[in-house]
């Protein structure tokens, strides 16, 4: 087990190192130089040279890379070439907003998917199971930002129950915060829920075919009792894996949903950075998102070992 944990941690760290090189290299192969991009085409050569020196862009690439990486490890994301403002605090603020969305979306997805998927599996030869399958198939086909637009049309435009967009920090006005969180969280959560439902269904179907469940039924447990006591933990292993992958999807989905609901999260920061040609900011935000995805996968790997005793003894 310890060996397995060390192996997973090593894979995580190597992946992180390689992706940091990739992100840096990708931004470094830019057709133009970042200083000229930041100052615009009309800037004098002297001003460009000055900015390059100021931000250390005149140093060799490996030096720049290790400098950037060293900063990242200390939580220093550098200073924007365009706005001349420190990037770290901005990213940190925006990340909190995005995390609210992602966590709320995940909770909604789970609340939808676990019961719906279980019912679909338990009744997979009945009309109710088939109907739920059809609904989930349609849900999978709707992108989160489209769900967001449709929810706005119904709940903000037609019914006027909830605000169409905006963001208020929870500390400032908890009521408004919740009101503004509901629609974006639903648009992320319902869509992910539809995807997750299909995995829950297939995982529960697999468990339903197991001998131990037949034994439980033979002891006199009702189908849902047997599932509850013996099935769900076993069905959880594949579902947790998918959940991890989905967290990554949610994080990226949030980028677009933030645009729909005009929410100042990490996604908006990234897109603003791209349109302002603020390349260091883009590089930092991409790295933070990649780090988040890798970290989630690493945690899923650990959970996997914790949930499945066979994996613990195997090594």
């Amino acid at each position: 087990m310890i060996l397995r944990l060390i192996e997973r941690a090593a894979v995580f760290l190597v992946s992180l190192a390689v992706s940091s090189v990739l992100v840096f290299a990708f931004m470094a192969v830019l057709p133009g130089d970042p200083a000229r991009v930041a100052l615009g085409v009309n800037a004098s050569d002297q001003a460009v040279a000055e900015l390059r020196r100021q931000f250390g862009l005149d140093r060799p690439l490996p030096t720049q890379y290790f400098d950037w990486l060293g900063g990242l490890l200390h939580g220093d994301l550098g200073t924007s070439y365009v706005s001349k403002v420190a990037i770290g605090p901005q990213v940190f603020d925006r990340l909190q907003v995005t995390l609210w969305l992602v966590v709320a979306g995940m909770v909604i997805a789970l609340v939808v998917a676990v019961p719906a998927g279980t019912v679909m599996a338990a009744r997979h030869r009945k009309v109710s199971g088939f109907a739920l399958s059809a609904v989930s198939q349609v849900g999978v086909a709707v992108p989160a930002f489209l769900a967001g637009i449709l929810l706005i049309v119904v709940f903000a435009v037609k019914l006027g129950w909830l605000p169409a967009n905006g963001w208020t920090p929870p500390a400032q006005d908890p009521g408004m915060f919740l009101k503004q969180l509901i629609l974006p969280a639903l648009s992320l959560g319902l869509v992910q829920g539809a995807v997750l439902t299909r995995y829950v269904r297939s995982a529960v179907l697999d468990v339903l075919r197991e001998d131990y469940l037949r034994t439980a039924r033979a002891k006199g447990l009702r189908p849902f009792q047997a599932l509850w006591r013996h099935g769900l933990r076993n069905a959880a292993v594949p579902v947790v894996t998918v959940l991890g992958l989905q967290l990554a999807t949610l994080l990226i989905g949030a980028v677009v949903v933030e645009r729909v609901f005009v929410i100042p999260g990490l996604g908006s920061l990234l897109l603003d950075g791209v349109s302002n040609r603020d390349l260091l900011l883009v590089q930092d935000v991409v790295m933070v998102l990649v780090l988040a995805v890798l970290l989630v996968n690493f945690i899923v790997d650990l959970l996997y070992v914790a949930l499945d005793p066979r994996l613990r003894t195997a090594s």
């Binding site: 931004m27 990226i252 990234l270 991409v286 990649v290 890798l294 996968n297």
Partner: peptide, 17 residues
Amino acid sequence: LLLAFPALLLAIMFGAV
């Protein structure tokens, strides 16, 4: 490792460059 770069993120990076 490529899985850590979803389509949207990759496309935004390509768009930036």
